[in-house]
Amino acid sequence: MLTTEAVPAAPEKALRVDAERRRQALLCAAASVFLTDGLDAPLEDVARAAGVGIGTLYRRFPTRDALVEAVFEAKMADYANRAEAAVIQAVEDPWAAFAGYVHDIIGMQVADPAFGAVLLRPMQGSELFSGAHARALRATRRLISRARKAGAVRQDLRETDLYLLVAATAALVAEPGPIRADAAARRMAQLFLDAVRGSSV
């Protein structure tokens, strides 16, 4: 009796490892391309930097937003975590908590200008990003409320003022002029803090 042997399939584990390797290559390439060329950089450049075809990129990340979310997932979570940590710190020292949070935001933007662009252009309809933004917004409101009640900041300070600071920092980092971007951003943050400092500090 004749039997036909099936050709052994590639081990499932090896396929998963290979797929994850390509995914990580795409994420690393995207982070680098976004850092130098911004969030609107051609995705073909990302695929080329990762050493894969554009079809491979789209199979793993069907849209630009999906790729952006995957690249910045950890930073978005860190951003929200920092805001929540500042709220806890504000119970004991509201001014230090607020000032530290401002410097945290500025530092994250200087380290990765593309992340600053993400903060200014949240993805619509994304459970991941909308959840992180909602956490950060709630925490920021509580932080400012505590700082206002303690007299640590001006009574008319709002969370939208921090958005204006993020926008100004993004522009400054993009075109720092004769001053280094990190030094210019730190200086602007200090001027902002001096402007919103309350009477009790």
Rank of each mutant, 00 (worst) to 15 (best):
L2C: 01
T3C: 09
T3R: 06
P8Q: 07
P8I: 10
A9H: 04
A10R: 12
P11S: 10
P11G: 05
E12Y: 05
E12P: 02
V17G: 04
V17W: 03
E20F: 08
R21T: 10
A25L: 13
L27T: 01
C28K: 12
A29E: 00
A29K: 05
S32F: 04
D37H: 12
L39D: 01
E44C: 06
A47Y: 02
A50F: 00
V52A: 13
G53R: 10
I54H: 11
G55E: 15
R60E: 12
P62H: 12
D65C: 02
A66C: 07
E69R: 03
V71E: 00
M76Y: 06
M76P: 00
A80N: 04
N81S: 11
N81A: 15
N81Q: 12
R82W: 00
A83K: 01
E84K: 05
A85N: 12
A86V: 07
V87S: 05
V87M: 09
V91M: 10
D93Q: 14
P94I: 07
A96S: 14
A99K: 09
V102Y: 11
D104K: 02
A111E: 15
D112F: 07
D112S: 05
D112G: 02
F115I: 03
F115A: 02
F115D: 02
F115C: 01
Q124N: 05
S126P: 02
S130F: 01
S130P: 00
G131V: 03
G131R: 11
A132H: 05
A132C: 08
R135P: 07
R141A: 08
I144Q: 03
R148A: 02
A150W: 08
A152S: 15
V153D: 00
L157I: 03
Y163V: 14
L164D: 14
L165H: 03
V166S: 01
V166Y: 04
V166D: 05
A168E: 15
A168H: 13
A170S: 14
V173L: 12
E175Y: 13
G177R: 08
P178H: 08
I179Y: 07
I179M: 13
A183P: 11
A185H: 09
R187P: 04
R187W: 14
M188R: 14
A189E: 07
A189L: 07
F192A: 04
R197C: 14
R197P: 06
R197G: 05
G198Y: 08
